[in-house]
């Protein structure tokens, strides 16, 4: 004879509702959960409060621009070119004749601009010793966060040598002070970065002169939670006494822009759940083993019925 099949015979434990024996298993489950939760919480990283993802922003040049050329004739002789009627009006005797062009190129045909080239040639301003350029963009992010804003790139250079050109080439990087909340569209900064372009200000409108100053404009811009800056590590100043001066900016849009965001509740729970579950399973296994000790050794009161014992019938 050989053993062909094994059939376990059970000893069944019965107990009334709300007895200690009845509550033992729920207690184990709850205890396992609480312990798992506590360990996950105290070991850190349970709630993922910020997360990053990578995307390519959609950037378009707004054709809003301000150029200041500082010349060798000294302070007060700077020449200005801007796309703002109000500024042009106030700077009427300081305007510079500029031949400017801009192009946006989608190099990889993915529907997003990858390169923005801006070239300005100014003539008749004399020797240029310094340039300040402010360029405005429409900037939007998709994916985990939905962000639409106006942003700026600022480029400047000055030199004791008179120049014939300034060439800046860099990435338009996102600068965040805090994570962007995911789950809704954020357009808190979808207004012009230039205070003199707000509300469609026209020439001759009222204007406190202090708001024209670049430190004031940049200070206001830098107060924002999200902003952009031109990460141009290799500016080239071509020195030379030239009858014209060329400012050329190549603004590259990063294909892998890291964005810090605050996840939605579901996403937070997703990461929390896997941590809790992983620890819970360990403790649930331990409690299960201990259950045998509790019931087998009659640590709690139960009524034990064996499958070998004939079942009494009620009539």
């Amino acid at each position: 004879m050989v053993q062909v099949y094994v059939e376990p015979i059970s000893r069944r434990h019965y107990a009334p509702y709300f007895s200690v024996a009845f509550l033992y298993r729920p207690f184990c489950i709850i205890a396992s959960l609480i312990i798992a939760f506590s360990i996950a919480l105290t070991s850190g990283g349970l709630w993922v409060k910020t997360h990053t993802y990578v995307t390519q922003p959609s950037v378009r040049f707004k054709y809003d621009m301000l150029l200041v050329f500082e010349t060798s004739k000294g302070p007060g002789t700077e020449r200005v070119w801007s796309t703002f009627d109000s500024v042009n009006y106030l700077m009427g005797n300081k305007l510079a004749p500029v031949d400017i062009s801009a192009s946006e190129q989608d190099v990889n045909s993915d529907g997003k601009v990858d390169l923005i080239d801006i070239k300005a040639v100014v003539r008749g301003v004399g020797d240029v010793h310094g340039v300040k350029a402010l360029m405005a963009f429409d900037y939007s992010l998709g994916g985990r966060v939905d962000l639409v804003m106006n942003s700026m790139a600022y480029a400047s250079h000055s030199s004791p040598l008179a120049g014939s050109g300034l060439y800046v080439d860099g990435y338009l990087r996102l600068d965040q002070r805090d994570a962007i909340p995911a789950g809704f569209t954020r357009h808190d900064y979808n207004y012009s970065v230039f205070p003199f372009a707000e509300h469609g200000e026209a020439k001759g409108d009222t204007r406190d002169a202090s708001t024209l100053r670049l430190p004031v404009v940049l200070n206001q811009y830098n107060f924002r939670n999200e902003s952009t800056y031109l990460d141009a590590k290799t500016p080239v100043w071509e020195s030379g006494n030239s009858p014209d001066f060329t400012f050329q900016a190549r603004v590259r849009i990063p294909t892998s822009q890291q964005v810090l965001y605050r996840p939605t509740t579901l996403e937070i729970w997703k990461f929390a759940w896997v941590q809790i579950l992983a620890i819970y399973i360990i403790f649930w296994w331990i409690f299960t083993k201990f259950e045998y000790v509790v019931f087998h050794h009659r640590i709690v009161d139960t009524r034990v019925v064996s499958d070998l014992q004939a079942k009494s019938h009620r009539f």
């Binding site: 302070p75 007060g76 700077e78 106030l90 009222t206 204007r207 406190d208 002169a209 202090s210 024209l212």
Partner: peptide, 18 residues
């Protein structure tokens, strides 16, 4: 008012009650 170099120009356009 101050221009971009701080030198005076006619840049302070006064607004009513401002």
């Amino acid at each position: 008012g101050a221009t971009f170099s701080g030198v005076c120009g006619w840049t302070n356009v006064i607004g009513y009650n401002m």
